[in-house]
């Protein structure tokens, strides 16, 4: 692949491999950050009573558990949807349309 796309052909459509790699890494980092924003907001509601002078250990433990259970929930839902879809494809019609 590398031999066929020489640097002289870098006119149209060719993507700098270094740039492509950079974009992949950055968008992965961005997905991570986005989920951190989302979970912080969600867990703040569950774990924060009144903001005190420091984050106490109980609240901190709550945040950690909250993250773990959120990811568990997301995986559970994904698995269950996959299973029900296999045994009884409810969405097949709407998806295949």
């Amino acid at each position: 692949m590398e031999s066929s796309s020489s640097s002289s052909a870098a006119g149209v459509g060719a993507v700098d491999p270094q740039l492509q790699h950079f974009m992949e890494v950055e968008s992965q980092k961005q997905r991570f950050q986005q989920l951190v924003h989302q979970m912080t907001e969600l867990c703040w509601e569950k774990c924060m009573d009144k903001p005190g002078p420091k984050l106490d250990s109980r609240a901190e433990a709550c945040f950690v558990n909250c993250v773990e259970r959120f990811i568990d929930t997301s995986q559970f839902i994904l698995n269950r949807l996959e299973q029900t879809h296999k045994s009884k494809p409810v969405f097949s019609e709407s998806l295949s349309d």
Partner: peptide, 25 residues
């Protein structure tokens, strides 16, 4: 005063969540 404290705790929370998510991954 409350807002200032809340900002600091929100940052703490953000960092805690980030660390927890990272170690899970």
């Amino acid at each position: 005063k409350c807002i200032a404290m809340c900002m600091d705790r929100y940052m703490d929370a953000w960092n805690t969540v980030s660390r927890a998510y990272n170690s899970r991954l």
